[in-house]
Simulated scan of single mutants.
Amino acid sequence: MKRTSNPLLRSKTALYFLCVAAGISVFAPACKKDDKESSAPAVSQAEVAAAVNTAVTNGGVVAQTEQAAQTASMYIATRKAAKVTTDDCGYSDNGEIKFATEPNTVPYLSINYTYDFQLKCDANKNFQAFHFDFGGKTVYTDKKMSVADTSTANFDITGLSDDSKPWVFNQTFKNRAGLVSKDASTQSFYSVIDYTAADVTVSKSTLQIVSGTAKLKISGTNAAGKSFSYEGQIVYKGNKKAVFTVTGGSSFDLTWN
């Protein structure tokens, strides 16, 4: 099938993403790690939570989810407004999303993503799902730390019919990051996050995450070469809030703008 492109869809989507990305959340670790204690873990739970927060909120999972929801919403709305009757099954498009706050601002955020999406249909040519692939990198800096990461993500969005109230997301997300500490509240370390979420719901009116749960694993090494590994889950609470809980450990609030 010949690939088509919708310039209006792409330009409005990119503009929306700039608005989403401009809201930067900052996470303050709840406690300090005492490197002098031989029994202390290589990286503390609070430090791991800081890495998870950055990967999820600052241009990460949340922003990509909202971007995908906006793209799907605009495509459906554009199709209806134009009273399209042709078969759109297999329609695909792609784009590049770039954003950066002003240089030397604190906090600073830079995002550079590419994305592809495709409309999938069932055997009767009814809209079934949008499939999204994201890939790119972000840089985030505040007074406490500087984080540079790369990530890839795959999203399947269902709930396309008019009688379905929310969008429903099934997601995988992989993030590799290097965190460089700027003060004593946290240490420098490298991390890899594997994130999997099923049935995350997103409002079709606000394009915000309403509910859902994600499981994740995070592992890596600190500056001294000592390894760490944790598992946990994120529960989305709506109203731009979530809770990250380390398995067998502490819970940490995640928020974004």
Rank of each mutant, 00 (worst) to 15 (best):
V62T: 04
V62G: 04
V62Q: 08
V62I: 15
A63D: 11
A63W: 08
A63V: 14
A63K: 10
Q64N: 05
Q64V: 01
Q64Y: 05
Q64C: 10
Q64S: 11
T65M: 13
E66S: 13
E66G: 04
E66Q: 15
E66A: 14
Q67T: 15
Q67F: 14
Q67S: 11
A68W: 04
A68Y: 02
A68L: 06
A69I: 11
A69L: 12
A69Q: 10
A69T: 06
Q70M: 11
Q70F: 13
T71R: 01
T71K: 01
T71W: 00
T71Q: 10
A72S: 12
A72G: 14
A72I: 05
A72D: 06
A72M: 01
S73F: 01
S73P: 01
S73A: 12
S73Q: 09
M74C: 04
M74Q: 09
Y75H: 15
Y75D: 06
Y75F: 15
Y75M: 13
I76T: 05
I76F: 05
T78P: 01
T78A: 08
T78E: 04
R79H: 05
R79G: 00
R79C: 02
K80G: 03
A81Y: 09
A82R: 14
A82G: 09
K83T: 10
K83V: 02
V84K: 14
V84L: 09
V84Y: 10
T85L: 06
T86M: 06
T86I: 05
T86V: 09
T86K: 13
T86Y: 03
D87H: 03
D88G: 03
G90Y: 09
Y91M: 04
Y91P: 01
S92H: 09
S92I: 02
S92Q: 10
D93S: 11
D93V: 05
N94Q: 14
N94F: 09
G95L: 04
E96A: 07
I97R: 00
I97H: 01
I97D: 09
I97W: 01
K98S: 13
K98T: 15
K98P: 02
K98R: 08
F99P: 02
F99M: 08
F99W: 11
F99I: 12
A100P: 00
A100K: 10
A100G: 08
A100T: 14
A100I: 00
T101G: 11
E102G: 09
P103M: 07
P103L: 05
N104W: 03
N104E: 11
N104R: 08
T105V: 07
T105L: 03
T105H: 03
V106T: 15
V106A: 06
V106E: 05
V106Q: 06
P107A: 02
P107S: 01
Y108C: 07
L109E: 07
L109V: 15
S110A: 14
S110K: 08
N112A: 05
N112V: 12
N112F: 01
Y113K: 14
Y113V: 03
Y113N: 07
T114A: 11
T114I: 04
T114V: 08
T114N: 12
Y115M: 04
Y115S: 07
D116T: 12
D116R: 08
D116P: 02
D116A: 11
F117W: 12
Q118I: 15
